[in-house]
């Protein structure tokens, strides 16, 4: 099977790092075929950034995502721009505190209160991207919990390991709660 996952948000939110964490986990620790890529504009901050991860059991030829199975959006701008790339029957995960998308028969949507929970728990939103990775991992079940944990640690700056692991777990908790409805 081949899955296309798209993280999207604003430049500077760590959307690319989120995709690198997922890619590292699936490729190096779960032994899948993986391609991670991103696209952004000339500006260093702002804009609508996307970062894609293709995870497959077979060889991946074309390296870019076209019809995404999972779309994670952390800003309204990114959600508006990339919702049209979701595959029929795909899954959309948004930061319910800031992003709104209508319900649709074409996709399942989960609105997770990421920002408010990050503020409540850490008093900052620096790790919103890791929360998003945790939420995605829980929703999709495509990568093992151990692999994701290892990849988060490998991609954490010194001193942020604990907070990142807590953020990963927070993302998982939010996804579990949302799935229960």
């Amino acid at each position: 099977m081949k899955y296309e996952v798209r993280f999207s948000g604003s430049g500077g939110q760590g959307v690319i790092t989120a995709s690198v964490i997922l890619g590292t986990a699936a490729a190096l620790h779960d032994g899948k075929n993986v391609i991670q890529s991103q696209s952004y504009g000339p500006e260093a901050r702002g804009g609508a950034t996307k970062a894609d991860v293709i995870i497959s059991d077979g060889k991946i030829l074309y390296p870019k995502a076209i019809h995404v199975d999972y779309l994670v959006s952390l800003t309204q701008k990114a959600a508006n721009k990339f919702i049209k790339t979701i595959k029929k029957g795909g899954t959309v995960i948004i930061d319910g505190d800031f992003v709104e998308l209508p319900d649709s028969p074409d996709y399942k949507i989960y609105r997770l209160p990421m920002t408010s929970n990050a503020m409540a728990k850490f008093n900052r939103t620096t790790t919103l991207n890791v929360i998003a990775v945790g939420a995605f991992a829980e929703m999709a079940g495509l990568v093992s919990a151990e692999a994701i944990k290892k990849a988060v640690l490998e991609n954490s700056p010194k001193g942020f390991e604990e907070m990142n692991i807590a953020s990963l777990e927070l993302g998982r908790d939010l996804a579990r709660a949302a799935k229960k409805g």
Partner: peptide, 9 residues
Amino acid sequence: EIIGHMREK
């Protein structure tokens, strides 16, 4: 840009 910026194992 694609080959330069994408990641693979």
